[in-house]
Structures are given as C-alpha cells and as structure tokens.
Design a protein around this nucleic acid. Sequence first.
DNA 1: CAGCCTTTTTACGTTAAAGTCAATAGATCA
DNA 2: TGATCTATTGACTTTAACGTAAAAAGGCTG
Lengths: 133, 133
Amino acid sequence: MQRYFTITQLTQEFDITTRTLRFYEAQGLVLPQRRGRQRLYTPGDRTRIKLILRGKRLGFSLNEIKEMIEMYGSSPGETGQLRLLLERIAARREELLEKQRDIELTLLELDEVESGAKARMSELHTKMHVETE
Amino acid sequence: MQRYFTITQLTQEFDITTRTLRFYEAQGLVLPQRRGRQRLYTPGDRTRIKLILRGKRLGFSLNEIKEMIEMYGSSPGETGQLRLLLERIAARREELLEKQRDIELTLLELDEVESGAKARMSELHTKMHVETE
DNA sequence: CAGCCTTTTTACGTTAAAGTCAATAGATCA
DNA sequence: TGATCTATTGACTTTAACGTAAAAAGGCTG
C-alpha cells in the first residue's frame, strides 16, 4: 500500500505554494510521479521536501541543498568517488560547525541586550515608584 | 588615538568586494566617516561588518540583520518600547534555537552517510584483498 | 453533458544582493 | 606638471528564488 500526497496537501503542511514545489521539481530537487498530469508525492518525496526546507532555514542555496541530497542518496562503488564523498561530508560538517559557533555568539549577544533592557525597565519602575511616593 | 581602516583593508580581511561594502552602506548598515570622499572605517564599523557577515552565514536577510543591529544599539527610555524590544529578542532567540536543532539533525545525518561510506570502503578493500590472494 | 473547480503549463514580472562598467575625482610619484 | 593609480559614483546587468497571470486540460457534480 503506497500512500501518496497531493501537491496541495504538501503546500498546506509546509506552508509553501504550489509554485515553489513545481520550481523545486524543475530544479531536480524532487521528482514526484504522475497520474496523468497530476503530481503524486510519496512519503520519500515528502522527506526530501523537509530536507530542502531545513536547508533553506540554515541559509543554504538550492544548489547546495541539491548537492547534499545527492550525497545522501549516492552509494558510489569506486574508491575515488568514495573518497570524494568523504571530503564533501567533511566540508559540510565544517560549515555546519561554523554556523553553530555563529549561533552561540549571537545568542550570547541577545542575552546581553536582554539583560540591559530588563535593567532599564526596572530602573523605570523604581523611578515611577519614587516619584509617586 | 583613533585608528581607521580603509575600505580595501576590510575587503581583504573579510574577502568581500568594495561594491559589497558600499552596498551595505547604501542600505544603512554601516556609516563610515569621510576624509574628503574617502571612507574611513572605525573599529566599531569593523565590528558591525563582522556582525553582518555572521548574519549572512546564518541565512538572515540584510533587512533582518539591520533590525538586529538596531536592536543592539537601541536603548529606548519608554516601557512600551522596551517591552517590544524584549519581544523581538525572544522571537530571534526562537529562530536561532530552531536553526540549532536543524544543524544537529543535519550533522547526525552526515554522520550516517559517512559511516555508510566508510563501511563500503572497507568492503572494497577486503574484496581486493581476497581477489589478489 | 454542461458547468465549475483544481491542476498544469507557459511566460513574463519581481526582489534581494550584489557584479560590471564607464566616467570622474583626488592622490601620488617621478 | 604630467602620468599613473586608486577610490568614488552612477547606471546598467545578473542570478536565485520564487510571484503572478492567462490559457488549456482534467475531473467531479448535479
């Protein structure tokens, strides 16, 4: 029993438009089957779409995302290709680790701004309190 | 003693073009002083540029980055504004935490692909070994 | 089977973030 | 001072990632 999703189901689930999904298909990122002219998405297609959107949230371009997806599915039988695959994995991992550090720093700065704002807020309250005494 | 950076120094340090820095200036993201027509960047300007590039790496748009930078510098004196600032901080934090989770997942998947590739690689070696015996 | 709704195709438009190019202005160096 | 270099400005172009609109093709319903 193969369960399929329609394009509109997926657009609603992920809050994207049909234009977007067809665009991703034109870029070779998803390849839904057809029943006549209608697109049928398998659970596997749905997973790929999730991967695409996750990549987008992290700031990767569609081309980079395509490469990553191809990495996932690839199982090269030759040593040279395998070595290349391992290199690409290492490179991606580096990028992701850098993004992690970037996020850590940004979160720390947000903490600072927040405590500054909270301090000013309690100052304001104190002042109001004194003035109304 | 105020030390200044020239535009080319910064382009070399951050590996961007002068066009990019002037574009950021036109968008109001940095505001270097002028000596005649020449731009002079202070250490503070340099820090802002670092913030911009970090934001870009995380997939934020220049407009979002501008908002964040303005948050950093702002010190509103009114409670309503402060409350708004705190809300924005919370929203940003949520986004960043989601990105963190996205990264974790992606790293895990990379691990899987990698160990799969390594397994296939040692299979290949074993096979070669057997065949050449 | 006529009418209506959804889906698909095709084609052109748009926006963000620069890239490229040409003209001009200062700055520098022999 | 003339020549050369670098920086600035303005205009136009490009690319990615869709948005929008129009026409045709199914599919469903009374």
